[in-house]
Amino acid sequence: MVLAYILGLLVCFILLARIVDQFFIHSLDRISKDLKLSSDAAGATLMAVGSSAPELFVALFAIFKPGEHEAIGVGSIVGSAIFNLLVIVGASAIVRKAKLTWQPVIRDLIFYTISVSLLLLFIWDGSFSLAEAGILLAVYIIYVIAAIYWKRFLPYTDLPFDETKTEEKKKRGIIDVFDQFLGKLFPEKKYYYLVFLQSIIIIAGLSWVLVELAVLISHHFNIPEGIIALTVLAIGTSIPDLFSSMIVAKQGRGDMAVSNAIGSNIFDILVGLGLPFAIYMFIHGGKVGAGDGNLLYSTIILFSSVILLLFLLLFSKWRVGKISGIFLVLLYAIYVVREIIILYI
Rank of each mutant, 00 (worst) to 15 (best):
G43C: 08
I266W: 00
L308S: 01
F61A: 15
F64N: 11
V209T: 09
V11M: 13
L46W: 01
G8C: 12
P104E: 06
F122M: 08
N260C: 10
G183E: 07
L35W: 13
G286K: 07
A71V: 07
F282C: 08
V49A: 11
S244G: 12
M47R: 03
T231Q: 04
F161D: 08
I227E: 01
D108Y: 06
Q103N: 14
G8I: 10
K184R: 14
I247K: 02
G321T: 08
K36A: 10
W150Q: 14
D158H: 13
S76C: 10
D292F: 13
V195R: 02
M281G: 04
A261S: 14
A48Y: 02
R172S: 12
Y344M: 14
L343M: 15
I235S: 01
N222S: 15
V58C: 07
D241K: 10
I72M: 10
W150S: 05
L312N: 09
P240D: 01
G321F: 02
E55P: 05
I31L: 15
T237C: 09
L197H: 03
Q22P: 00
V78K: 01
S264Q: 02
F61Q: 12
I340A: 01
S218Y: 04
L314T: 03
I114W: 00
T164D: 08
V20L: 10
M281F: 11
D29H: 07
L86A: 09
L15F: 13
F122G: 01
L35E: 00
A41R: 05
L16A: 06
V248W: 06
D40I: 00
A278Q: 03
S127A: 13
E68D: 15
D34C: 11
I77D: 02
P155G: 12
Y280Q: 05
E188N: 15
Y332G: 04
S218M: 09
L121F: 14
F64H: 09
P160M: 14
S324W: 09
F128L: 10
L136Y: 02
A4D: 08
S115V: 01
G263K: 06
F161N: 04
V95Y: 06
E132C: 04
L10S: 08
I262H: 10
I114F: 00
F111Q: 01
L120S: 15
A81I: 07
I227A: 09
I200D: 06
I342H: 12
V11G: 08
K33P: 01
A131N: 08
I123L: 12
P54G: 09
P54S: 15
S218C: 12
A261P: 04
F181V: 14
I141N: 10
S80N: 07
